[in-house]
């Protein structure tokens, strides 16, 4: 199960950013507060709140129960098939001293999380149906980009309107696809990306080339370079690309939506 770790000025902000990264609603995520924000003299921020979060592999509960989710609402709920949690290991590794833990209460009841292939199948059906509703012709297939990430891509002609200006419509299509997968399977385990007419692929490749170029300069000159602010998804591309290169490493700084990657020479 994939965890994301995010920071923010407040715990709330960090949680919000985590939900955006996971692309799920709050009731479908579980959080751990790794660090409370500390303020220094004169209210200046000394360190940010750090929170980690993941999608809870649990079937969604009926809406009425959501208000009480802090208090064991997971034990109740529904006729869906469940099995007791088998893995306490994942949580054990996260227990660190002196931290407030806002995680969902024990004992946690899990359904078996769907596989990436199952998620991809639901997504493909949904997108094929969407093409039909639009009266567009196209093919939908999927590819696992890594063990946590599957990309479902639509190819065909005249698909530009599904991308929209700056990919805004594509972002909405992806959001709806994730929503539908979540509803149909009751949970999501990995990251699900949607691409149309290789829009994301082309952007990703351009971003990889760009990051590789900057990384080479940082390594040669030995001077850290901050990139423009980017979305979490784009930052991940940069982190992944740069960290595969010897002699450089990355970090992030700043607040959403101005959070940016810094490429550093590795000492």
């Amino acid at each position: 199960m994939q965890w994301v770790e995010v920071t923010g000025r407040t715990v709330e902000e960090a949680k919000e950013a985590a939900l955006d990264q996971l692309g799920v609603d709050e009731q479908d995520a579980e959080f751990e507060i790794l660090e409370e924000p500390k303020s220094g003299l004169f209210g200046r921020l000394r360190s940010e709140a750090r929170v980690r979060a993941r999608v809870v592999p649990t079937a969604p509960r009926p809406k009425v129960e959501r208000r009480e989710r802090r208090r064991g609402s997971r034990e109740r709920g529904g006729s869906r098939e469940r099995r007791p949690s088998s893995g306490g290991g994942q949580r054990a590794e996260t227990a660190r001293k002196g931290q407030t833990t806002v995680t969902t209460d024990e004992p946690q009841v899990h359904v078996k999380p769907p596989t990436l292939a199952q998620e991809a199948d639901v997504a493909k059906d949904f997108l094929q149906g969407l093409l039909d509703a639009f009266g567009l012709d196209g093919d939908v297939d999927s590819q696992e980009l890594d063990e946590d990430t599957v990309e479902v891509s639509v190819h065909g002609s005249d698909l530009g309107l599904l991308i929209g200006p700056k990919g805004q419509t594509l972002t909405s299509v992806q959001e709806l696809t994730r929503t539908v997968v979540q509803r149909k399977l009751g949970a999501r385990s990995g990251r699900l990306l949607v691409d149309v007419a290789d829009y994301r692929k082309a952007r990703r490749e351009a971003l990889e080339r760009f990051a590789t170029g900057v990384a080479a300069k940082v390594r040669d000159a030995g001077v850290a370079t901050a990139l423009e602010p980017m979305s979490p998804a784009d930052r991940k591309v940069v982190h992944d690309t740069v960290n595969a290169i010897d002699g450089v490493t990355t970090t992030s700084e700043g607040e959403e939506p101005n959070r940016r990657v810094v490429i550093l020479p590795q000492s």
Binding site: L161, L162, S172
Partner: peptide, 24 residues
């Protein structure tokens, strides 16, 4: 709640995709 979503995100996404359909 399902068609609106957290902070109206699902509704916003629906509007954007339907707008694209209208543009067609």
């Amino acid at each position: 709640g399902r068609v609106i979503g957290r902070r109206g995100r699902v509704a916003q996404a629906i509007r954007s995709v339907v707008r694209a359909a209208g543009a067609k």
